[in-house]
Simulated assay, not measured.
Amino acid sequence: MAGVRSGGGGERVVVLDGLRLVAALMVVAYHYVAFGEGWEGSQAPLFPVVFRPSAYGWLGVELFFMISGFVICMSCWGRTVPEFFVSRVIRLFPAYWLAVIATTAVVALMPGGIDPLAWRDVLVNLTMLQWPMGVEHVDGVYWTLWAELRFYLLFALVVWRGVTYRRVVAFCCVWATAALLATGYDLGALDHLLVVPHCWFFIAGLGFFLIHRFGSNLLLWGIVGLSFVMGQQTVMQTWRRTLDRVGDNVPGWGVAVLITVFYVVMAGVSLGWFRRVDWRWLPAAGALTYPLYLLHESIGWEIFHRFQGSADQWVLLGVTVVGMLVLAHLVHRWVERPASRRLKRSLTSAFAQVRAGGEPPAPRKPAPREPGPPGSRAFVPGARVPEPDAAAGPYAR
């Protein structure tokens, strides 16, 4: 999105664009510095100053999920299910398709690094449904898109009924209760449908938007508070798994602190603390986040693997990050925007045909011109100019 606007009064929440960029750069730092498979050996000696902060970068995903809950609730107000579907398709797929093709090409053309997938698996990746099909991701970061799709599927139930304050509150309460029951009874398939354990951050985003639009009350803060407590618990499980990946002792208190900071900042967004933040560059920066997120991991690792022995690691890291930002800008400008416009027109026309029972939508005819008096621009030769109705008076229409 070029900017984030409230579905109610049209107010632009520009600070969310900046937060999305922060989240994306956190993930980039984690993959490039702390979890970079392109570097030989441990990254801790290579980047002694930034290694430990970068080891918490995976938490940017949780911040993404919170922002997603906020923005989806905001943008779906007053929309129908077809409109919701079209908005998500044009937002997710154009840059994603290019990222799948570009990543596959780079991996295939740079030998000695990551092994490319079979072409059938690449085709499945283009649908974004590789996880339920048991197919490996072209790029590891794509797992979060499957989490987003499941959130959209669940929230589509609210959109179907019509997004209102009561229905969003009920949705949050039912989702939280179902997630707790599924976790407690170890219902694996239901866990997956309910996006456990990441659901708490989507729920928090929904609660924060309701506070932003309707004002705070005890019920909404209770929803946010429950998600905070449960989210703190689930991220610690992820933190323990990351210790095996980063190869260094990263203290768990840093995870708790960062999650707390995320909640405080999002609370500030919902309460209007950042209302005066209206920097013009923030929407442009926010537009980089999705292409950057999709493209950075495997392509960056291939670059590190290829050039590590012939360049200083700091220079190589900096050049790669800047190069990825430039690439993300080009993808947004030359792929995302034009492709999204064309895809939106096509999908909107397709849904109109569905509503018409299969008949193609009738072309819009130009409005007939009213004949005017001779000498005027509205004069139509040969047309009968009606006589004025004297009885109606000068104000007749």
Score class of each variant (00 low, 15 high):
T260C: 12
F155H: 06
K344V: 05
G57T: 03
A352V: 03
A390T: 10
L63C: 10
F35W: 14
F93T: 00
G188S: 14
L347T: 07
A204N: 05
G78I: 00
Y152H: 07
A267I: 08
L294D: 02
S349H: 12
W239K: 03
T289H: 03
G134M: 06
R364L: 14
G247Y: 00
F85L: 14
K365L: 15
K365E: 15
P116C: 01
C76L: 10
G309R: 04
L317R: 10
S298Y: 14
Q353Y: 04
T127Q: 10
R150T: 09
Y142R: 01
V28F: 06
F262M: 13
I259P: 11
F64C: 09
T127P: 06
A179H: 02
P251A: 02
P111E: 04
R377L: 12
L316M: 06
R275Q: 12
A350P: 09
V163I: 01
L317S: 07
G225C: 05
Y290M: 05
V106T: 03
V265Q: 05
L220N: 00
T127I: 08
A392T: 03
A95I: 07
A23P: 02
A267R: 13
D244C: 01
L325I: 14
L327M: 14
I101H: 10
V141A: 07
P53A: 11
A256D: 12
V224C: 10
D248K: 08
L16K: 10
G382P: 05
I101C: 13
S340M: 09
F51C: 11
V138D: 06
W281V: 15
L187Q: 15
R280F: 04
W97M: 01
A350C: 08
T127E: 08
P373I: 08
V86G: 09
Q43L: 13
V229F: 10
V380M: 00
A392Y: 00
L157M: 12
L243M: 10
L288N: 00
F93I: 00
R88S: 04
C173T: 12
L271Y: 06
L292G: 04
R241E: 14
Q130N: 13
R364D: 13
A391M: 03
G9P: 09
T103G: 01
I72C: 04
Y293V: 06
A176L: 12
Y30D: 04
R337P: 04
G184P: 02
V107C: 05
V15N: 04
G18A: 04
A34E: 07
I67C: 09
D278Q: 15
M26Q: 04
G252T: 04
R369L: 15
S68A: 13
L19R: 09
L206W: 14
G3V: 13
R245L: 14
W221K: 03
L123V: 15
F155S: 02
R240Y: 13
